[in-house]
Structure formats: C-alpha cells, structure tokens
Design a protein around this nucleic acid. Structure first.
Length: 309
DNA sequence: CATGAGCGA
C-alpha cells in the first residue's frame, strides 16, 4: 500500500518551510508573529581546526521549541591529506612568481583592449570594388582561354602567354577535395589528359561522330554549384573543381546591377566522367562555412526572342 | 533562395 504523499513530504525541512510560509503570511496580514519572535537567534561556531562549522538554531515543532544543531564541514580539502585552499594560499612562491608582490602575482587579469572578430561574409565594404575588378580580370582571362581553345567565341583570340596558366591547377598544392589518392578523381589516372590542358575536340570523350559542331559541345557537361558564399571567386572554383579534370568554362552568376554574386555558378567540364566525379565528391562538401550543392545543370533556358541558329 | 548572356557580321 503506497501512501499518497507529496514528494516534498519526505524532506526533513518540510515542517520548517511550512512554518516559514505561515510566518510570512502572518507578517503580510500585519498580525504579530507568534512563536518565532521568542526564539533565540541562530548561532554559528567555527570552523575549528578540523574545518567543522557548528550552527545552532531554534525552531518550533508541534508547539514545542526545538534546538537544532548542524555540523558543517567547511572544506573537504582542508581536512584531507591534499592541500586545501587555505593551505595553498600560504605556499611559498616558486617559478616565475618568485619575488612578485601580491598585485603582480595575480594570475587572472582583465583586459580592456578591443578584440575584433573577423566577419566571414563581407557584403558591402570598401574592398568590394577591387574584388570585382579581379573577378572581371579573371573572366577576361577565361574568355581569352576559351577563344584560343576554340571551345567558344571566335577562333582569333589575343595572344596567350602567361594567361594560359589560369586553368593549369597545380595538383600538388592547395588542399581540398581534389587532394585524393592519384587516380581517384584527382589528376587523371592515365596520366595523359586530365589536368587543365587543352584537349582537341576530336580527342574528347564522346566525340565519336564527325560533324558535331562546337555549339552542341559548348554547354555540355555543365555542372551547377549552388550555395556558394558570395565572395567566391572564379579562381576559387578553379582550385575546387580543377583537380577533377579539364574545365572548359566557369561562370559565376552575378547580379547585373549590384555585381554581387548570386550564390551559384556553372562549371563545364571537358569530359563528362570527370564532371560526374566532381559532383560525387563535391556535392555536400563544406566550403566557406557553407555546404555546397553540386549537381548536373539543366540546359540553359532559351532566350525569349532569339531564333536558334 | 537560386538554372548563365550583348552580339557588332
């Protein structure tokens, strides 16, 4: 048989609490407090050399005055064999603290110095314009490269010299998802084509039939990457995707007027398998504190009134 | 959240 008892009833101090509550009610009613007024005050002794503090107080229980004596151990450490806080305060200074006065030996100090936290995203600061300038330059480099490789645009491009290295991604440097065991999505396993070098259309994967025009090639193997941080630059994408294979185009979508990144981009691979490997490895990849989404891009929407050529 | 664009012979 379980008695209906509130959990609080099992506590020893329950009676005391009830008395306290009654006293409070009585005080609120401006009625003279009855029993508590006649009780002797609480007394505290110690702590003694063993660290025992003795507390003596009085309360009323069943209309009887009761003397309650508690013994409290102040510091466990102090009575044990290890050093308590009191003992530690009196230890001789050693090490670098030797010879320091009370002020100097403080181990906790306060600083009023300002600490600036670096913002990961800088949306509208002064460096914005310069970054855009770099992006435009990179874009120009890309276009020149594409022209000279005959993938898009006119075949007569400007002479290319140092610009060529834009897509030659050094595999050895720059840690990232491309840093994989050789032959696993990094540099091509066969050693021949695979890194940023130009591959003639006739040698590209899938170039079986003759007569295929550049147009049909141009937007193939297009990978869309979304959830990019808005300060992701083209070079970042080169470093990110380049290790998977030759890239024929990188397009970052910028807002036409604000020039800010819209957070997604397209990367075209020369070879479809390498695009697929990039998707497999980079989809869900954490980049710039964001989780990238990498997938096959849908074919570009045809322009409203532009007859297909 | 989200699927790219200037281009003139």
């Amino acid at each position: 048989m379980v008695s209906m008892m509130r959990w609080g009833d099992t506590l020893e101090d329950d009676d005391f609490d009830e008395l306290t509550a009654q006293a409070l009610v009585a005080a609120n009613n401006a009625a003279p407090a009855k029993p508590t007024a006649k009780l002797p005050p609480k007394q505290v002794f110690g702590p003694d050399k063993d660290g025992i503090k003795t507390i003596v107080e009085y309360k009323v229980e069943q209309r009887e005055k009761v003397k309650v004596t508690k013994k409290v151990r102040v510091s466990k450490k102090q009575v044990s064999t290890s050093r308590g806080v009191f003992e530690r305060r009196n230890l001789a200074k050693f090490g670098e603290a030797v010879g320091l006065n009370a002020e100097q030996e403080r181990t906790t100090m306060s600083m009023t110095e300002d600490i600036f936290l670096e913002r990961v995203k800088t949306s509208k600061d002064n460096t914005r314009k310069d970054e855009n300038f770099d992006q435009l330059q990179a874009l120009a480099t890309t276009k020149a490269l594409l022209r000279m490789s005959g993938i898009s645009g006119k075949p007569d491009g400007p002479a290319f010299g140092a610009e060529t290295k834009a897509y030659k991604v050094p595999m050895s440097v720059r840690r990232g998802p491309g840093e994989l065991p050789p032959g696993e999505g990094g540099a091509s396993a066969m050693g021949k084509p695979g890194s940023g070098q130009y591959v003639p259309p006739s040698l590209r994967a899938g170039a079986s039939s003759v007569g295929e025009t550049m147009r049909t090639r141009r937007d193939e193997n297009s990978v869309r990457v979304t959830n990019l941080s808005e300060d992701t630059k083209e070079q970042d994408l080169v470093e990110l995707f380049g290790p998977f294979g030759a890239i024929s185009r990188i397009y970052i979508a910028y807002d036409r007027e604000t020039r800010e990144s819209r957070g997604f981009a397209f990367i075209n691979f020369v070879r479809r398998e390498e695009a697929q490997r990039a998707i497999n490895k980079l989809d869900g990849y954490g980049y710039d504190n964001l989780i990238l989404r990498v997938e096959w891009a849908a074919p570009r929407e045809p322009r409203p009134d532009q007859p297909p050529r």
